[in-house]
Design a protein around this nucleic acid. Structure first.
Length: 326
DNA sequence: TATGTCGGCCAGTCCGACGT
DNA sequence: ACGTCGGACTGGCCGACATA
């Protein structure tokens, strides 16, 4: 990864994320608006300026600092994504790396992702034509896991509310911290908190999350997950293998096959389609399998999309997503 | 406010394959 | 024949939402 810094007198420094081999195909709007997670707090997409804004963490200092970042793709620079750190004029090289790594993760800018997309496009020419294949995700795997839990047993609107409430809680928790010890040169805080880390949630009680964030039974699942991570019992990394992650996720009570499949797609393992009632509708309508039910949905989805292996979910989501936005 | 419905998780049960 | 294992199935649970 390569980045350089340029001072901008009013808006803070601008970092450049070199797109490299992705520059031919990368389209920020498509990369962001490819998955509902882009609507979830603390993400904010401005369709008028085609800019993604959200808080990011800089982990290099002893206590984490949050900065607000605007990501855009100027038409006169196809080689770089512009990453503007609002209100901050100096960022250490270590923090730059941390920040750009998170942006790369969200937008799937990496050699590995690029290779996967090319491979998928070879077996799915339709996706290649419309530039589909880069599925938006979070800056951290933990955020993806928690957001996947928030998708269960409720409508989309409620999932959005719960994510926003968690960000509000993060701001409250951070507020207490900053009153106690304010670091010199700390970046401006945003009015919206960042998505909480497992460390920040470590001492939060289930009852508090339940009531404050209206998480319902999901509060207990998230607390269990956080405790397991913070005690060192579970450890999640992007470079872990499929089986290890599946076993760890499903060992957490409250996380079943749907949620674990969802997390795995975030990690880039697309072979297992997270099957819910929407998938049943999809298979009935699109593939005219009227007998599809909760019992058969996994088998049906596997049969229909196995020709796209190991990118079954991408092929499935290509159809679902285009139905959704049409 | 009461009731019905929805949707994913979970624990118990069933059943077939396999080994002894 | 019997015990074990694992996958499939089932009913209940939880919590929210829509409707009367």
């Amino acid at each position: 990864m390569y980045e350089k810094e340029m001072s901008s007198p009013y808006d803070g420094c601008v970092l450049y994320l070199l797109l490299g081999s992705s520059s031919l195909t990368f389209d920020l709007e498509k990369a962001v608006c490819s998955h509902g997670f882009f609507m979830m707090a603390p993400n904010h997409w401005d369709p008028a300026t085609k800019t993604l804004q959200r808080p990011f963490r800089l982990f290099s200092s002893s206590s984490t600092t949050t900065v607000v970042v605007r990501i855009y793709q100027p038409s006169n620079d196809s080689s770089n994504l512009h990453v503007q750190v609002v209100g901050t004029h100096f960022i250490s090289s270590q923090d730059k790396q941390v920040l750009l790594a998170q942006v790369s993760r969200m937008l799937r800018v990496s050699e590995k992702e690029e290779n996967d997309i090319s491979e998928f496009h070879e077996i799915h020419p339709g996706a290649k034509i419309v530039g589909f294949g880069r599925i938006f995700r979070s800056p951290t795997l933990f955020e993806d896991i928690v957001k996947s839990i928030l998708l269960c047993n409720c409508g989309w609107g409620r999932s959005l509310d719960m994510a926003r409430a968690l960000c509000d809680v993060q701001l409250e928790l951070k507020g207490f911290k900053q009153k106690a010890k304010r670091k010199r040169g700390a970046a401006e805080t945003s009015s919206l908190g960042d998505f909480p880390t497992s460390k920040e949630l470590a001492n939060v009680k289930k009852e508090f999350l339940e009531k404050r964030c209206n998480l319902g039974y999901r509060a207990e699942t998230i607390v269990r997950l956080v405790r397991s991570i913070e005690s060192g019992e579970l450890h999640f990394e992007d470079d872990q293998d499929y089986n290890t992650v599946t076993i760890m996720l499903e060992s957490v009570k409250g996380i079943g096959s749907f949620t674990s499949s969802y997390v795995l797609t975030c990690m880039g393992f697309y072979q297992r389609i997270p099957a819910d009632t929407e998938t049943i509708r999809h298979i009935k309508q699109v593939h005219a399998r009227e007998i599809c039910s909760a019992k058969t949905v996994n088998k049906d989805a596997n049969e229909i999309y196995k020709k796209y292996a190991p990118f079954q979910y991408l092929a499935y989501w290509y159809v679902s997503y285009h139905l959704l936005i049409s």
